[in-house]
Nucleic acid binder design. Structure first.
Ligand SMILES: [Mn+2]
Ligand SMILES: [Mn+2]
Ligand SMILES: [Mn+2]
Ligand SMILES: [Mn+2]
Lengths: 227, 227
DNA sequence: ACTATTATTTAGTTTTATCTAAATTAATTT
DNA sequence: AAATTAATTTAGATAAAACTAAATAATAGT
């Protein structure tokens, strides 16, 4: 993960990260419009930036064919994600933030340039493996356990797993979870799914409850014994 | 110190901080060239930025007359300095950095925008009053104990005080201090000064030593019982 | 008071990251 | 296969922050 420290602007870093995340969803090459939407900018701006990143050989690009990260680009993405998630752990574990408050600030902190800083922060936090949302933290070398988390709405009946994250971290949703005694770290089993409305019956630590499709598509489980 | 959160770029913040520091040295209005030197930029760039800051009424400016910070400008400066110094304390106290390593990274961290973050960091660090170099940390409200630190070279004979900071934080100088058993927190008394070369005789915790003018003009003492 | 020197500002460019509007290519329908 | 629609790129503009070179104002020396 060291490479030879390519100089990158904040903007370039955010684009690289966006491309990484989009290519996770849909492993093929990433569309210009998708990047524009993610970055809340215009497709023409994306094209400009893609050309720049391509010149730096951080992405593979052919006109009208979309982009994918090069190996260097992937490493840059992982190093930014590593920083983002370590700062999130710091804010939650050391500064008593709650998990829904940290993302915006981590968006800024992830751009601080200092390898020493991030190494020592990692040590200070006890080398955490996941961030407060349950997402894995890449190592310095750019390796990390591939996420095995899936949305409840995507899992087959009888799946069992630990609740490790949410999609929607709005205050309203978090309040709902609290009220229904659903918390990070709880183990759930999917008992049944209603084809009609997609609602799901799950067993939790307080008994069996039924959740709507909307809720099920916002809760991630980590599946046991996955590779 | 809250004001109504003026939007400021990183560059504007660094200029405001530079103007603040320069006006501390020499309380009058600050010269364009002095800012250019401090910021390692050209006078013409400084003029451009001054006009911008003046439009935002963060500085008082009349052509050819130099600039001074407005009251808002002073508050902005103090809030950046507060952040800079708190991050320095964090790196030294929590991440085991040494005091000569933290400044460059703090130059970046001071620009992170989050009032909550800095408040919680302050609490996490136990509301420190000084940074690792002995410089005072402004409060949220923009008040702080006026520095009573003086260079040994500027103090009269028989002054006594606690060593709280250095001017030159090069590795070579810090090594020298270590070798001579001079550390932050030690109490020194100035016994004698040689007019010929400005060298000074001081009593330290390991006995009496003689230091050159060059060393004396790099060590700050905090004088006891000053207001 | 005049001149030389220094400090500061202005004018005109450059680079980076945006944007809008127009042109082009790709994909979908009929 | 032609026409329509959608996606993408190009062209041209703008704003921020820098620069160089030239002009102007302030200061100092005689
Ligand atoms: Mn970011
Ligand atoms: Mn996260
Ligand atoms: Mn800075
Ligand atoms: Mn300091």
């Amino acid at each position: 993960m060291r490479l030879y420290s390519i100089e990158m602007t904040l903007s370039e870093e955010d684009y690289i990260k966006a491309i990484y995340h989009l290519s996770q969803i849909d492993s093929k090459s990433v569309a210009t419009n998708a990047i524009a939407e993610q970055m809340k900018t215009k497709p023409s701006s994306v094209t400009d930036m893609i050309k720049k990143l391509s010149k730096k050989s951080l992405v593979n690009y052919k006109k009208y064919q979309g982009v994918s990260l090069s190996e260097e680009g992937r490493m840059v993405a992982l190093s930014i994600i590593r920083k983002h998630r370590l700062w999130e752990v710091f804010m939650v574990n050391k500064l008593n933030f709650s998990w829904d408050e940290v993302h915006v600030v981590a968006e800024q902190l992830e751009h601080i340039k200092s390898d020493t800083l991030i190494d020592r922060l990692d040590a200070h936090l006890g080398f955490p493996k996941v961030d407060p949302h349950g997402d894995p933290i890449p190592t310095k070398e750019g390796t990390f356990k591939k996420s095995v988390k899936k949305l409840i709405s995507e899992l087959p009946i009888l799946s069992e797993g630990v609740c490790i994250g949410v999609n929607d971290s709005s205050a309203a949703f978090l309040k709902f979870l609290d009220k229904n005694k659903i918390a990070l770290g709880d183990t759930f089993k999917i008992l049944d799914r209603e084809d009609f409305d997609g609602s799901v019956s799950i067993s939790t630590r307080v008994g069996t409850i039924r959740i709507s499709e909307q809720i099920a598509s916002n809760l991630y489980l980590e599946i046991r014994d996955a590779e």
